[in-house]
């Protein structure tokens, strides 16, 4: 018995050790970004005292203003569009017979599994075929494109749990085909839709690669602006770190809020 529990403990220790190591690896860059965002130094090679000036500069710096506005605009609009379309598609896919449904889900996985660079190039080719000028609209379409599969993936499990007769019951009780969707299906999958929307938003706001290939030379979001600045051998203002910390904090706050609300709702039900 003695020997065995020692063995079990050592196994547990390995798990714990790797877990600590993982969190260390994953959190180190976040901590560094935070330190740099409150460091008085512009270059970031050394600690020159605590400051909040970069957080102030963020709202005054004209160079960063445009990429930030671009990023937020695309994130919000692509989230709304992708959530609406993704939910509708998911409802349609769920209604298919099993074989067709699985086939559609396989197709849905293509952009999820495909490396971003391949997705970026593919989109760029389509836009050039259609002679679209690369800019806001092409980036928007691109973001909608890569977000929809994630919305579908998070709505689908909820839909599958629904009683297949639910929609028919709605129709039977006098709903039209459209109002049946809104009154019966949507309320029951709302948590899935919400988490899909959150996923779409967080992915859009941080995207670099796909934006890079579909934005052309003029239009920039924060990521492509950072990359362009660095590629030209210049350095950027630490306000960028401040921006990241603010977005990061807001994202956590939103998700925490949504989760707490959901937990409370589930508790009362």
């Amino acid at each position: 018995m003695m020997k065995k529990s020692v063995k079990k403990k050592s196994l547990k220790f390995i798990g714990l050790f790797f877990t600590v190591l993982s969190y260390l690896l994953i959190f180190t860059p976040i901590v560094v970004i935070f330190i740099l965002s409150v460091n008085a130094s512009t270059k970031g090679y050394s600690w020159e005292g605590f400051t909040l000036k970069w957080y102030v500069e963020l709202f005054e710096n004209d160079v960063m203003n445009e990429p930030i506005m671009n990023t937020l605009l695309v994130a919000v609009s692509s989230t709304v569009i992708a959530t609406v379309l993704g939910t509708a598609f998911a409802i349609g896919i769920n209604a298919l017979e099993k074989k067709r449904r699985v086939q559609m889900m396989v197709i849905n996985n293509v952009p999820v599994v495909n490396p971003d660079i391949v997705t970026g190039i593919s989109l760029m080719i389509v836009f050039s075929l259609l002679s679209f000028t690369l800019g806001y609209y092409t980036v928007l379409i691109a973001h909608v494109f890569f977000s929809i599969p994630y919305v579908i993936l998070s709505v689908m499990p909820r839909l599958k749990k629904l009683d297949p007769n639910l929609y028919e019951a709605g129709l039977d009780l006098g709903c039209s085909r459209i109002s049946g969707v809104f009154k019966v299906i949507i309320p029951n999958i709302s948590t899935g839709i919400l988490s899909g929307a959150l996923m779409a938003f967080t992915m859009s706001i941080d995207d670099f690669i796909i934006t890079y290939f579909t934005s052309g030379a003029e239009y920039m979001n924060v990521s492509t602006w950072l990359y362009a600045t660095l590629s030209r051998g210049r350095s950027f203002t630490p306000a960028a770190y401040a921006y990241n910390i603010i977005i990061f904090t807001i994202t956590i706050a939103i998700i925490l809020f949504v989760n707490l609300k959901r937990d409370r709702k589930e508790k009362t039900v």
């Binding site: 994953i26 860059p29 560094v32 740099l36 941080d206 950072l226 990359y227 660095l230 977005i247 990061f248």
Partner: peptide
């Protein structure tokens, strides 16, 4: 806690590693 860091900009996370790996870095100083 494992998902949260993914909401931080990928490019800035790479730049953070770049800063860490510099011969004279903020980590070095702190």
């Amino acid at each position: 806690m494992m998902i949260v860091p993914l909401w931080s900009n990928m490019l800035l996370r790479i730049i953070a590693w770049e800063k860490i790996f510099q011969p004279t870095s903020i980590i070095n100083d702190l």
